[in-house]
Simulated assay, not measured.
Amino acid sequence: MPQTSARKHGGDQSDGSGSVPKSKNPKTSKASEDGEKKGLGKRLKDVEISVPIVYGTISFWLGKKASDYQSHKWTVYVRGASNEDLGVVIKRAVFQLHPSFNNPTRVVESPPFELSECGWGEFEIAISLFFHNDVCDKQLDLYHQLKLYHEEESGPQSTKKPVVMESYDEIVFSEPSESFFARVQNHPAVVVPRLPPSINLPPAVPIDGVNDKKRGDTKDHPLSQWFLNFSEADELLKLATARQQVQAHIAAARRQLMDGQAQQSKPSLG
């Protein structure tokens, strides 16, 4: 029963209007319930496997090469939160681009799960993830807004500083199959719990081609210098800072209210 957890945050996110109308009512990602499948072994009760992922886009202005219809080159991707290969869990990714593109439905059958294009407009990209048979038989749908411009900057664009917009999420698989657990229990992209000694897992069966030369590992990706870092410690620090700011605003409002009441309570001179 895979599902995305509530822990979700993004970087450099903004609403802003784009050159192409955005899709209405963008939806939060959520995986459908996994049905029991024969031949996949037993399922581990009261066990959850978590897969942290990051999905997003990086766009570069083309500078002197820019035209009215091709002003930016951009890449959309799904990667491991720490840039590890996701091919051990994900079988393929389908990217749904704007209908103005030739062949707007793009299928990526192997990691790294990404594609690059050139264009001039911003739009919402639908990303559908499909998992290996022993993981889940339903797809997970994600939605991401392509951004081409730095909204906080009013100066000229730069060909060296890209626009990065990423979102962090965690895919949680409840009651995973034994074959799935055995295959990913030592994989750096997957978070697994410690099992009781009484549980004997079957031998791990690798998936053909998944680990060949770490082809899905994005640690050496040419765009990795622009990837954002996501960590629980950073999020807790942000929450603590925000809480302090809220408390300071509340204290200031109370002082202002008390000062106003004191002024009103002073006797008037006749």
Rank of each mutant, 00 (worst) to 15 (best):
A182N: 08
Q185N: 11
E114K: 14
Q157N: 09
P162N: 12
R106F: 03
V108F: 03
Y168G: 00
S158N: 13
D134V: 07
H98N: 11
F123Y: 15
V78T: 05
S128D: 07
F113E: 00
V135F: 10
R92W: 02
S82E: 14
G80I: 11
F173T: 03
T159W: 08
L140T: 09
Y143F: 13
Q139M: 11
L148F: 13
E84D: 12
Y77T: 01
W120G: 03
E84H: 13
V184G: 01
K160N: 08
S110P: 00
K161D: 10
W74R: 09
L86M: 02
R79V: 05
S100K: 15
H144M: 10
D134Q: 08
M165F: 12
D137S: 10
V163W: 07
I125T: 06
F131G: 01
D85Y: 09
L146F: 07
V76L: 07
H150F: 07
H187C: 01
S174T: 13
Y143S: 14
L148W: 13
N83R: 14
D141M: 13
I90R: 02
M165V: 14
L97V: 05
K160Y: 04
V172W: 05
P112I: 06
S174L: 14
G80L: 12
R79G: 00
W74I: 12
S110A: 04
N103P: 05
V78W: 00
H144E: 06
E151V: 13
P156C: 04
G121F: 11
E114W: 03
I90L: 02
V107E: 12
D85N: 15
E166N: 06
R92A: 00
N103Y: 14
Q145A: 11
E151C: 10
E170D: 04
N133L: 05
V89D: 01
P99Q: 11
F101M: 13
D85P: 07
D141Q: 11
V135Q: 02
I127M: 05
G80E: 10
L86C: 00
S110Q: 06
C118Q: 15
S116N: 13
W74M: 11
K161P: 02
K161H: 10
K73F: 14
A126V: 06
H72C: 08
E178M: 15
E114A: 07
F173A: 01
